[in-house]
Design a protein around this nucleic acid. Structure first.
Lengths: 129, 129
DNA sequence: CGCTTCGTACTAACTTATTAGTATGAAGCC
DNA sequence: GGCTTCATACTAATAAGTTAGTACGAAGCG
């Protein structure tokens, strides 16, 4: 009785990004957005979106001619889940080493660093009070 | 002429974590370490380690009776690659939103936050000079 | 020496992911 | 009305990942 898989694969995430951006989209709209990046068949997109519906990331409703898909959960919530899963899988749940990697790898600009420092202060305030 | 796949899957990473910890290991050693967590067959571990050798994450050398596997690359380097891939795939290369999620999700303790602040200062020093 | 243990190589079964083709029906145009 | 367009449902082919069984040789033991 286990829910099978449920995590977003790389290509599923690509599609979700598009639907989040458009807020709602038909298969055709997603197909055309994807075409700008790579060759893909219309039916392939349809299959993927059907899977995303099964996985509960999208829900569909009929509108005139074609189905319109909308995200079942906000982007932030889903991404947060992916970050959690990644931190658990790679760092056994410890987030600090991940940030250490980002800092060492110069993935963060000076502006980013200032922004993070600001968030840290805000977070410290929030949990102090 | 492209190298097929090359990324570490979840179970491959589990094995790599063990080998990194032991520094070098036979199939049996990894098998026994894995058994503490879950039921798995000896030959399954062997197959996985053979795949890891093909993917160039492990290299083997004969020692007395059995093969001894050693990591081909240091842990930090491989993990850094995984972080990069994740940041690219999920955040289109932007690391700052990832940290924002960690902060919002309270994944970082006060101690972590202080440590990160320290790293940020060190990084600022390093790039300033 | 014959039997058990340990190790490797090879093979296999099953699952999930990825991509796309075919069939079919509704809608619109000339 | 017949042809093209667009949409869905169903089917399929391939690849990758996961797990493990079988065959077989070497080593050690009683």
């Amino acid at each position: 009785m286990k829910p099978p898989s449920t995590t977003l694969t790389a290509q599923e995430l690509e599609i979700m990004k598009i639907v989040w951006r458009l807020e709602k989209a038909t298969v055709r709209a997603v197909y055309e957005a994807l075409l700008e990046r790579r060759k893909i068949a219309y039916t392939t997109v349809m299959t993927m979106m059907k899977i995303l519906e099964q996985k509960k990331y999208l829900s569909k409703s009929r509108d005139e001619k074609a189905f319109v898909y909308t995200p079942s959960a906000p982007r932030n919530q889903v991404i947060r889940g992916m970050v959690r899963e990644f931190v658990d899988r790679v760092f056994n749940g410890a987030a600090e080493p991940l940030v250490a990697h980002l800092v060492e790898d110069r993935k963060l600009s000076q502006k980013d660093l200032r922004e993070i420092a600001r968030m840290i202060r805000a977070s410290a305030e929030g949990s102090k009070k």
